[in-house]
């Protein structure tokens, strides 16, 4: 089987601080992988390294490799902009731009050179339908995205990534600003999206990992302690540290 994403002996440093330690992980296409672990263990760092947004922080450095579709994304010849398009990111807090709903969704296509109104309209409808926002928002294209509720804003951020034409969606605790009911709706959405996309979701909510993901990885202090099918991680963890965390005996 060919993997969509492979992390090979990946280490990430912030200055002298060793934030990710020698991570090895393979992720198949069209699966949902959940990353769990206590705060500060390096989950966000891992996602941000895959999108190469993390290198904007001064003093970050990586060792090892990340392959997407068998290509090393840290190869000097990599087109970073195309990579970020392929692996779009959704952040912890919705970060819709202070622009209209329409301009938010078309932002990705526009920065990647799509100008035709008809084409953009089509993309908007498709990505809004895919995130179940079309009926609510089709009359509100010109409204400021910031006037929407947090849930809608976060769904709009997901729609923005879909509109980009991403194949991989990286979500960093996408529900942490939402209430339990809207959280469930986003989870449902993710399961639906799995049919077409490869998804990695960071969460510190274990129920969430159990509900949505096919695979789960448990991280601790920069290490990937264990990764396996989600059902196995939650019922028969191989590592004592995973078991302690799952059963709530952590720390």
């Amino acid at each position: 089987m060919e993997y969509k994403i492979e992390l090979v002996n990946l280490s990430v440093y912030y200055g002298d601080f060793h934030a990710l330690r020698n991570i090895n992980m393979q992720i198949g296409a069209k699966t949902i992988t959940a990353l769990i672990g206590p705060s500060g263990c390096g989950k966000s760092t891992m996602l941000r390294t895959i999108n190469r947004i993390n290198e904007l922080i001064d003093g970050t450095r990586i060792e090892g490799k990340i392959l997407i579709d068998q290509k090393d994304i840290y190869h000097p010849k990599t087109d970073i902009l195309q990579l970020r398009k392929k692996a779009g990111m959704v952040f912890q807090r919705p970060n819709c731009f202070p622009l209209s709903v329409y301009d938010n969704i078309t932002y990705g296509p526009r920065v990647h050179g799509i100008k035709k109104k008809a084409e953009l309209d089509e993309i908007v409808e498709k990505s809004l339908r895919a995130t179940w926002l079309w009926d609510e928002l089709k009359e509100k294209m010109k409204k400021s995205a910031l006037s929407l509720s947090l849930e809608y804003q976060q769904r709009l951020c997901i729609a923005r990534v879909l509109a980009l034409g991403s194949e991989i969606i990286l979500l960093d605790e996408p529900c942490s600003a939402l209430d339990p009911i809207t959280t469930l709706r986003i989870e449902e959405l993710l399961v639906e999206l799995k049919k077409d996309y490869t998804i990695i979701i960071v969460t510190h909510n274990m129920q969430q990992a159990a509900r949505v993901s096919n695979y789960s990885g448990y991280m601790l202090m920069g290490e990937l302690v264990e990764v396996n099918e989600t059902s196995k991680i939650f019922t028969s963890p191989q590592d004592k540290r995973t078991e302690d965390y799952i059963t709530g005996r952590f720390g």
Binding site: L81, R84, K85, F91, R93, N95, H112
Partner: peptide, 15 residues
């Protein structure tokens, strides 16, 4: 302007 806008835009592959 919040830093999250910059990150959001760059993470989508904008220059």
């Amino acid at each position: 302007v919040p830093h999250s806008y910059r990150e959001g835009s760059l993470s989508l592959g904008a220059t």
